[in-house]
Design a protein around this nucleic acid. Sequence first.
DNA 1: CTGTTAGCGCCTTCAA
DNA 2: TTGAAGGCGCTAACAG
Lengths: 351, 351
Amino acid sequence: MSTGLPTIGEVARQAGVSPQTVSNVLNNPQLVSPLTREKVQKVIDALGYRPNSAARQLRTHASSTIGVRIDPASTDGVSGVALDRFLHELTQRAEERGLRVLLFTAENPDDEITQYTKLRDTADVDAIVVTSTFFGDPRPAWLASKGMPFVAFGRPWGSDPDDPLVRWVDVDGRAGVRSATEHLYGRGLRRIGYLGWPHGSGTGDDRRGGWLEACEELGLDHSIELIAEERVPEARAVVQRLLADGSDVEAIVCVSDTLALGAMMAVREAGMPHLPVIGFDNTPVARAVGLSSVDQSLDAVAQGVLDLLLGGGARILPTPPHAEPTHRLVAPRLVVRRSSHLAVVDNTQNG
Amino acid sequence: MSTGLPTIGEVARQAGVSPQTVSNVLNNPQLVSPLTREKVQKVIDALGYRPNSAARQLRTHASSTIGVRIDPASTDGVSGVALDRFLHELTQRAEERGLRVLLFTAENPDDEITQYTKLRDTADVDAIVVTSTFFGDPRPAWLASKGMPFVAFGRPWGSDPDDPLVRWVDVDGRAGVRSATEHLYGRGLRRIGYLGWPHGSGTGDDRRGGWLEACEELGLDHSIELIAEERVPEARAVVQRLLADGSDVEAIVCVSDTLALGAMMAVREAGMPHLPVIGFDNTPVARAVGLSSVDQSLDAVAQGVLDLLLGGGARILPTPPHAEPTHRLVAPRLVVRRSSHLAVVDNTQNG
DNA sequence: CTGTTAGCGCCTTCAA
DNA sequence: TTGAAGGCGCTAACAG
């Protein structure tokens, strides 16, 4: 039973060399003389030969594959983690570095750990990318204890961020919100409010810190603070109330695009469409409705994940400690949009 | 060099049988006597043994893996294909049937075909799931011509939908928009407008057909038709103009949530927040802002994709013709929401 | 620099 | 009903 695909032996025969030499041309070209190399390469090209992954995996004990959980696009909110964008970036960069991305699902963190076990036992993946870390997250500790290579997208909230056993990449939410606040200040606004999540979420508290920091640095008052769960109507309601109460707020920075969308709706409905609102995540919705937003730089996150995993080489590094750095904080970037009010409508009419 | 994982030989030794018997317990239990079976199973459980995928792949010439392209979350619009939701459903159902999902990226259709070639040459996938088919799409024909098993999510627009060489699953957009229109009719509305994409897109024309059909059947006038590209501001502008012109429109059915969001904004800003707007795709945004929308039933689509691929068995079927059906049209379902105006705001205040 | 030998872990074939 | 032999396609280790 054959697959019809050429094998390394086939190439070797046609090139008049041994299979091992063909293998070397592929994996250790510097060991092969330029002449043979070229000769072999010609046959490879002619046959369209590519090494069989399974055979290579079996022989090398490496799948060159990383596993990522795909979430149930779930919950309220507009964003999720913007997971699909991250996945795209990760997959693309992984391909460039000779890695594949395998998906799996899980109902909850414990189930996810079960999946890790399976993926390891079947040798399907060399490493795991953990997303959406949270307070008390059991996953990093479990993976570290099993010596299963992994990188987390998201800080290990609630445990030592400098633990060399936990490699992580995260977006610097504090810096992001800070730059949003500073941007508004630069536009001459002084009464800058903050709309955040209830306290206790690592990500949320971090972002809020950026607003506080900027306020203190710039000598602004930081008394206008609103709180809402990650739901548009709730955000809309609290901002509605704020405006109805006659607040002198001049701009609102939000912890997420979801809340920002709600805020934006309230602001428009209150007849103050020019009161700036800034979101976080730069989701498609923000783009769609013309909302300024802090972009997570998911390309840089994906890059960071692979850098930490591979350490500049082509092979997945074992669980630290090793010489490489074990975490990276990515700077997000503010994307400024003019609220799609009349200006944009006019543009569109020309299109 | 070993992986530390138990092998089939290890299990065999501890159970006092041959490796072959262990293999049979796993793959052909009916060939093994209940007694040995139990004995072997006990050792399997004790060791946590799972067969190595690569070895199995190599031996069986089947990867039990399907490849799916992940899009660049791209473009304007709020939805994409809701690809992440589809991916989740597909991965979950694939797992249940012993299949894995491997991601890949591509810049354009030709590049995608190059990726197919690679995935086949390396024997990484047994089949491809093609998403977002379009007029003149070269992918299905290419795959069919190479005998590479695949299923398309999306009809092969512009070529024979009954071609048995092209297996596909799609959402019945016509039926979806039709039911949305009928729903509005049932609420007593008669002047029902349609906001669609420019003509020429298979999906768009199909959905529009549902509106026309319903109008004719119900004896409604179908003169209120608006057109916009897949962008919120553009949708907002055309609806704004419609309302400014004093149209007597009573409800608007939209080809997508993106356009519906724009329509909704225009409607609210015109002070007619109770004018119903219905979208298509049931994206997170629709949920977030309380927009009624036609849900694509992506769970059923994923199910259909696997059914067509596996035909009820556990092995991927070769390119048709075979006995199984080769396409499936999935009925979408209308999700009705009360526009998150005051009612919802009030609810939230209690929460 | 190139070739030979061996074996990764599993399952198909065939014999007992 | 069970076991032995062999090989899927590749590369590590070692000779030459």
